[in-house]
Simulated assay, not measured.
Amino acid sequence: MYYPYLRGRQFELIALREYAQQRGDNNQIIPIIEPVKKTFNSLKLAIPRLIAGEVKFALILNPQVGEIEDSSHITESLSIELENKDNWIPTFIVTNNILAIRTAIHSNGYENVMLICSDMLDTSSEHFEALAKSDQVKYIVSNNRTLKRTLRGHNKFFIRIDDKFEAQKRNSDYLEIPEQKFTEEHLFFGEDGYQGFSDYTVLTSDFKEGGATPYAVSIHLTYQKANEEIWIRHFTSESNFGRENIQGKFAEAARKAVHFLDEENIENNASNELRDYYNQEKYPGLGMVKKITIKNHLELINSIL
Rank of each mutant, 00 (worst) to 15 (best):
F128W: 08
F128P: 11
E129V: 07
A130N: 04
K133G: 01
K133I: 01
S134Y: 01
Q136H: 07
V137C: 04
K138W: 09
Y139L: 08
S142P: 12
N143F: 05
N144Y: 03
R145S: 03
T146W: 01
T146P: 00
R149L: 05
T150Q: 01
L151N: 05
L151T: 04
R152H: 08
G153P: 02
G153N: 10
G153T: 04
H154Q: 15
F157P: 00
F158I: 13
I159C: 09
R160T: 14
D163E: 15
D163G: 11
F165P: 05
E166L: 13
A167W: 01
Q168S: 12
N171L: 12
D173L: 04
L175E: 09
L175V: 14
E176M: 12
E176A: 15
I177P: 05
I177W: 03
P178I: 03
P178C: 06
Q180W: 03
K181P: 05
F182N: 02
F182G: 01
T183Y: 02
E184D: 10
E184A: 14
E185D: 15
E185P: 00
E185Q: 11
H186N: 15
L187T: 03
L187F: 10
F188Q: 03
E191K: 15
E191F: 11
E191S: 08
D192C: 09
Y194N: 08
Y194F: 15
Q195R: 07
Q195V: 04
G196H: 08
G196W: 11
S198W: 02
Y200M: 10
V202R: 08
T204R: 06
T204F: 00
F207K: 03
F207E: 10
K208G: 03
K208I: 09
E209Q: 14
G210N: 09
G211S: 02
G211M: 11
A212F: 13
T213C: 06
T213R: 09
P214F: 13
Y215W: 01
V217A: 15
S218T: 15
L221P: 03
Q224W: 06
A226P: 05
A226L: 14
N227E: 14
N227R: 07
E228R: 00
E229H: 06
I230D: 00
R233I: 08
H234F: 11
H234C: 07
T236E: 01
N240K: 04
N240G: 12
N240M: 04
